[in-house]
């Protein structure tokens, strides 16, 4: 086992700690310091003013999915169903068809991901033998007005570009 063990001293046995009220007052003083600090200068609040200020999404973030393409713009996915098999939320549904351009035998005829069911675990990315599905779009907020529009299809998956350079993405350990 290579894990570092850090022994934390157990508190709460001394008399002052057992009286409890003193420790409560200490704690309350601490929170009050935060309040006063923030009241004096509310720029110190640890708050991002979303949506005006957008967060920086790192390359390893598992955002909305996309399907990658070959250099010539054809779909990389071979409809092997590995992602669908591996998906614990069963949100992926694929239908396969014969591929005629000699890149592979199979290609997806439809590739639907139900984003409402997806748990963004990234198992599909992990399972993909061809790096055809990725979650590197950096899209973290998926909103819409009706359920149907959360089922995204082949077209949308293919047209969404990745948000990071290949280098950054690979650095993420993919």
């Amino acid at each position: 086992m290579g894990a570092k063990v850090k022994t934390i001293e157990r508190r709460g046995s001394t008399l002052t700690e057992r009286i409890y009220l003193i420790e409560i007052f200490k704690g309350m003083a601490r929170t009050l310091r935060h309040l006063v600090r923030n009241l004096r200068d509310n720029k110190k609040l640890l708050v991002r003013h979303y949506p005006e200020v957008q967060p920086e999404i790192p390359a390893r973030w598992r955002g909305r999915h996309r399907l990658t393409k070959h250099d010539d713009g054809t779909v990389k996915c071979v409809a092997c169903f590995m992602c669908q098999t591996n998906c614990p939320a069963e949100c992926i549904s694929i239908t396969a068809k014969e591929r005629l351009d000699d890149k592979a035998e199979k290609m997806p005829a439809s590739f639907n991901i139900n984003l409402l069911e997806c748990i963004y675990c990234g198992y599909c990315v992990e399972a993909c033998p061809l790096d055809a599905i990725r979650m590197d779009t950096g899209i973290f907020s998926v909103t819409d007005n009706n359920r149907q529009s959360f089922i995204i299809g082949l077209e949308e998956l293919l047209t969404t570009p990745g948000a990071y350079s290949e280098e950054d993405y690979k650095k993420g350990g993919a």
Binding site: L35, L39, N42, L45
Partner: peptide, 10 residues
């Protein structure tokens, strides 16, 4: 608002 400021949020 107090809860926010106690917890360093707004």
């Amino acid at each position: 608002r107090g809860a926010g400021f106690f917890q360093d949020r707004s």
